[in-house]
């Protein structure tokens, strides 16, 4: 049974997307199950159906390996809209890592319910949602985003203070993704935090590998986080 119209979730996601476009973002679109829908979202934004609406930057990610593509191609402040099953671990993995790349996520989810605290703007379309529901959801995302863009009063946002806490000591920090190890010495790593790569001291967290997610505060890794496992 479907949960009914996802009006509130679409409205919040649209406002977030409009604010990001206002700040210069590119929208990345990824639909691993039905790749053509990512292309459809991109053409909606780049070449609007209503004549005279502004063209907004949007690109489809065709690869199943969206993480590699977004990590290298997306810029801090960009947004990714993902269309896919809430139980897809590859999607959960991208959504979890996205803040380290400085990228905000919108997940149009169907099938299995998505995990609780993903950090994404989740728009839940229901267990039985089909492709027509998905198309309707991204059409409305496009439309509501343009409505928000016509109301400049709602677009300015202050610093978000988007920090996470170390589960052990509750110290605040930022999500970091380890890019490579040992750039200066054995306990040093190059870590991407909010889209920028910086040296981080790993001595408090023990052995790490590239791809691991850590909580970073003042150049020091506080803890290592569990990651979504996928093949």
């Amino acid at each position: 049974m479907n949960p009914g119209a996802p009006g509130d979730a679409l409205a919040s996601a649209s406002l977030a997307l409009a604010r990001s476009f206002h700040g210069g973002a590119t929208l990345w679109c990824w639909s691993p199950t039905w790749p053509s829908h990512a292309d459809h979202v991109a053409v909606e934004f780049v070449h609007p159906v209503i004549v005279g609406k502004p063209a907004l930057p949007s690109v489809a990610v065709r690869s199943r390996e969206a993480a590699d593509r977004l990590r290298s191609a997306a810029l801090s402040g960009d947004v990714v809209v993902v269309i896919g099953d809430g139980g897809d671990l590859a999607i959960a993995d991208v959504v979890q890592r996205a803040p380290a790349w400085g990228v905000e996520s919108i997940w149009l989810a169907f099938g299995h319910p998505p995990p609780g605290d993903t950090g994404a703007h989740v728009v839940w379309l229901g267990a039985d949602a089909g492709q027509a529901d998905v198309v309707c959801a991204y059409h409305l995302l496009w439309e509501l985003t343009h409505v928000c863009l016509e109301h400049p009063g709602v677009l300015e946002v202050g610093p978000t203070g988007d920090t996470i806490s170390c589960p052990a000591c509750m110290d605040a920090g930022d999500l970091g993704e380890i890019q490579s190890l040992g750039c200066a010495n054995d306990t040093d790593a190059a870590v991407m935090v909010g889209g920028l790569t910086q040296p981080v001291d790993l001595s408090l967290v023990g052995s790490c590998e590239p791809g691991d997610l850590i909580v970073v505060h003042a150049g020091v890794a506080l803890t290592k986080l569990a990651v979504s496992v996928h093949d």
Partner: peptide, 19 residues
């Protein structure tokens, strides 16, 4: 309009109607 809450309310209602 510059109140995000009021705007979100209107948008959610509109989206539900179009859905």
């Amino acid at each position: 309009v510059d109140d995000p809450a009021a705007l979100l309310d209107d948008l959610a209602r509109s989206a539900a109607g179009k859905w």
